[in-house]
């Protein structure tokens, strides 16, 4: 079978990227120094971003590069700064986790057997509203990037929900670890102490 040059190049790029992804994952499991592990997880995100680019999902690639390789690496570094610098050796047997990983991986691969082929026009994802959006978007929204017109207009209510989720997550983190709540409880504690002192004075009197 004759393979055209572009297909050959794209396949090679995919194979190289996946090989580097697997190598990074192995390195992450083997290294004890958490600083290196965090840096490698940033590399892992960057490689996945490149894979998204080869799949023409550029929006997702930008998100993965900015969130996965950028911000979450910084957050994990901050977490390491608060805790330990290197991984503690586990004394439990490693066979059961390995088995669980293999079974889960096998189940996932078995699941992909039912997937439609890549770019299959009769795939369920393209069969329902997808084509409709592509046809109507230019006429109704007149925005070249159909991803934007779907996210922001056709599914604007969804996106509002997503923004609310991001906002709620931010509030949650603030409540848990920023110390905004602690300041309040310090004030409460001071109030309690003051009350106790006042009562003590009254009792003395």
């Amino acid at each position: 079978m004759e393979i055209s040059f572009p297909v050959f190049i794209e396949t090679s790029i995919n194979i190289i990227l996946f090989a580097m992804l697997v190598a990074t994952a192995f390195a992450i499991t083997r290294i004890d120094r958490l600083f290196a592990v965090v840096m490698l997880s940033g590399v892992f995100s960057m490689l996945s971003a490149l894979l998204f680019v080869t799949l023409d999902a550029v929006d997702v690639a930008i998100t993965e590069a900015a969130v996965g390789a950028g911000v979450s690496t910084v957050l994990m570094l901050s977490t390491i700064a608060l805790t330990e610098r290197s991984e503690q050796k586990s004394h439990r047997p490693e066979l059961i986790p390995l088995l669980v990983c293999f079974v889960t991986g096998a189940a996932l691969i078995y699941g992909t057997l039912d997937f439609p082929n890549f770019g299959d026009p009769s795939a369920p994802a393209h069969a329902h509203v997808g084509g409709d959006y592509l046809v109507r978007s230019i006429k109704e929204i007149d925005v070249p990037n159909v991803v934007t017109s779907i996210l922001a207009s056709y599914r604007g209510f969804d996106t509002l929900g997503e923004v609310a989720v991001v906002f709620t997550a931010g509030i949650g983190v603030l409540m848990l670890i920023s110390g905004l709540g602690r300041r309040r409880s310090d004030e409460d504690a001071a109030l309690v102490e003051e009350t106790i002192e006042n009562q003590g004075i009254e009792e003395d009197a």
């Binding site: 911000v71 910084v74 957050l75 901050s78 977490t79 608060l82 109704e140 929204i141 007149d142 925005v143 934007t148 017109s149 922001a152 207009s153 604007g156 996106t159 509002l160 923004v163 991001v166 906002f167 997550a169 931010g170 983190v173 603030l174 670890i177 920023s178 110390g179």
Partner: peptide, 29 residues
């Protein structure tokens, strides 16, 4: 549609900027 998308995307950007910086402050602080 263009105007609406521009404004709501700006809203999304503002919230995401704020949340990401707030989480960073919370960890680094």
């Amino acid at each position: 549609q263009h105007n609406g998308i521009l404004v709501i995307e700006f809203g999304v950007g503002v919230t995401v900027t704020g949340v990401m910086i707030a989480i960073y402050y919370a960890f680094a602080g």
